[in-house]
Design a protein around this nucleic acid. Structure first.
Length: 592
DNA sequence: ATTAGACATAATGACTACGAACGCGTAGT
């Protein structure tokens, strides 16, 4: 657990505490804002303060949403390991009461009443209170509500697990296919965080444009994976899907049905993020306009769509952004992280990519022969392919020793001479050992065309050691790319937590590119890291790390992640042609 | 509690669907 996430939990709890005790809601929101900031920060607050304790308070206050109070509390936590208000809060509100808020259907009002009026402090108490019939007698509680709570008590625990994008996307595409095939459906799309390209997905959101929603709804509710119907209305329904398989987590799916004429407005609303939506709607409020899922309207009256009022725009997202005097904002950017204020940026696209710079063959643990992997690259129109098999320490991956590597490199170069459409680079994915030394001597690396250096073991190392380890690797003059720098696995392994600011600034100075590994189980670097790497002037490589042919098709996951980190075409070395890559890799990378 | 624009105080994150209860809480982006 990092300091940021510890503090995030505390600020969330302070916010909930205010809501539970009936305090000023603006104070609650304000604490939530701090929690969100801590969640999204790429820098460790501990290191911000440590950089110069004297000015720490002022520098914390410079962050939007952090004022005097929050800055003081953060410093107090770093000094003493606790925050007085939090300790006091826990004296009044038992910790288990906060957990009740996680139960679907229970919000702050309900938990407050249950706790204060009936003394319910945890799930067991709640069950007992329901059985005694006391809950039903509370205001706004009835038989149905109580039944719902009881049901949700059972699978509360697994309910909140997020699904990796690699699992969510195929399922979503399957459902989109069914919706498109349904009678009277004009268009069907997925939206939500999946469309924004987050690495994990909380629930699946679908939109179908149709003039006959009832039939579409019946199809959706009748899908074989549907385990439970949560809601079913005129325009919207929600189900819980049995996901099974490797994740074993149930996943909620929401379907919104809209008339074709307002599809764009509905897509914008349902794609979010919430924060992006709020920001746009604020702009509308200032103009005395109104934006909702039925369109962009002049005037401030509520539900203008009900009056048959004609929107300024509704059909496409582009038209709506245009009316708001904004460029089209791609879904990946819609997070309220400055995309509305800054002019449109030229994000990298999958069509720009012409190089795969990290791939494996049968020489180590890949399943493709050299000829086959080249064919894969040529099929995709690539002009450069780096062959980077594992080094000797990766025993399980059949890593190459110096002799096998030399032989392999020779074979690669021989084949390269017969190819004129593509540059085949003789490379390696060399292990970064625990102390940051590389698995091959410099003299061996110097002979190669391309060196990706990656950590594979000791991924639970302390942050300080991890920082030193990666810095040492980045300082090796033969390294071109730092591969999957943290070694995290989405939802399964946290990976290293080095001081990335230091790594990025060194990498930038040394001319070492940082990898976004496109494999959906990795997505490492993550999007926030990409943004921060770019601020330090780093170049980015988006690599599939292909071991089998279908891995080449993972490229879009890497592209999406990189776009979420605001990566432009020019900053992505995989978009460069042969000449530019050759010039870069064989000299002049370093700024002296 | 924080921010903005003022030097104390006002304004602050929008809008809608569903369902059960009855005029609202919860959930969704």
């Amino acid at each position: 657990m990092t300091t940021n996430s510890e503090l995030q939990i505390i600020f969330e709890r302070l916010a909930s505490g205010i809501a539970l005790r009936g305090g000023n809601q603006f104070r609650a929101v304000s604490h939530q804002r701090v929690a969100r900031l801590l969640r999204d920060m790429t820098k460790d607050v501990g290191s911000i303060v440590a950089d110069d304790p004297g000015t720490a308070e002022a520098r914390l206050q410079a962050l939007p949403g952090i004022g005097k109070g929050a800055a003081r509390r953060i410093i107090e936590y770093l000094d003493t390991g606790e925050i007085t208000e939090h300790t006091e809060l826990l004296e009044h509100v038992p910790e288990t009461v906060f957990d009740l808020l996680q139960i679907p259907g229970l919000g702050p009002k309900a938990v407050k009443t249950l706790w204060q009026d009936l003394g319910v402090e945890n799930a067991t108490d709640l069950r007992a209170a329901i059985e005694s019939g006391k809950v039903e007698d509370l205001p706004r509680m009835g038989k149905k509500t109580v039944e719902n709570i009881l049901k949700n008590l059972d699978f509360n625990t697994k309910q909140h697990a997020r699904v990796p994008i690699g699992k969510a996307l195929p399922l979503a595409l399957q459902i989109v296919g069914r919706l498109e095939a349904a009678d009277n459906v004009k268009e069907a799309h997925y939206a939500g965080s999946l469309r924004r390209g987050r690495d994990t997905i909380g629930d699946l959101d679908f939109i179908a444009s149709t003039s006959k929603p009832a039939a579409v709804r019946e199809m959706f509710l009748g899908m074989p994976e549907v385990k439970e119907i949560i809601a079913s209305g005129e325009t919207k329904c929600s189900v819980r899907l049995k996901q099974g398989g490797a994740t074993g987590v149930d996943i909620q799916a929401d379907l919104r049905m809209v008339p074709p004429a307002v599809l764009g407005a509905a897509m914008m609303y349902f794609t979010g993020s919430k924060e992006h939506n709020v920001r746009l709607r604020e702009i509308c409020v200032k103009r005395k306009w109104r934006l909702n899922e039925y369109g962009l309207f002049e005037g401030t009256e509520e539900r203008p769509q009900d009056e048959g009022k004609k929107p300024l725009a509704a059909k496409t997202e582009r038209q709506i952004y245009q009316k708001l005097d904004l460029p089209y904002i791609p879904p990946e950017l819609r997070e309220d992280r400055g995309e509305i204020q800054s002019p449109s940026i030229d994000l990298v696209e999958i069509g720009h990519i012409q190089a795969e710079l990290h791939a494996h063959t049968t020489a180590s643990d890949g399943k493709m022969e050299l000829e086959e992997i080249v064919e894969q690259a040529l099929d995709r129109g690539f002009t450069t392919l780096a062959i980077t098999d594992h080094s000797v320490s990766s025993v399980l991956a059949n890593g190459l020793d110096a002799a096998r590597l030399a032989k392999h490199a020779k074979a690669i170069r021989r084949l390269n001479e017969q190819l004129d459409q593509i540059d085949l680079l003789a490379g390696v994915e060399v292990d970064i050992l625990v102390d940051g030394s590389l698995d091959f001597e410099d003299a061996i690396l110097a002979e190669l065309d391309w060196v990706v250096a990656s950590p594979h073991v000791s991924l639970q190392q302390e942050p300080q050691e991890a920082t030193d380890r990666l810095l040492r690797a980045v300082d090796n003059p033969h390294v071109h790319v730092l591969g999957h720098p943290t070694g995290r696995k989405v939802g399964r392994r946290a990976g290293l937590a080095p001081n990335l600011d230091l790594i990025f600034s060194r990498a930038s100075a040394n001319g070492v590119a940082m990898e976004v590994n496109a494999n959906p189980t990795r997505l490492d670097l993550r999007a926030q890291h990409v943004r921060s790497a770019l601020e330090h002037g780093c170049l980015i490589a988006i690599d599939t790390d292909a071991h089998v042919p279908r891995h080449f098709d993972y490229l879009h996951f890497g592209i999406t992640t990189a776009r979420r980190g605001w990566l432009t075409k020019d900053q992505c070395i995989n978009t460069w042609d042969r000449e530019r890559l050759t010039a870069w890799r064989s000299g002049g990378r370093r700024e002296e």
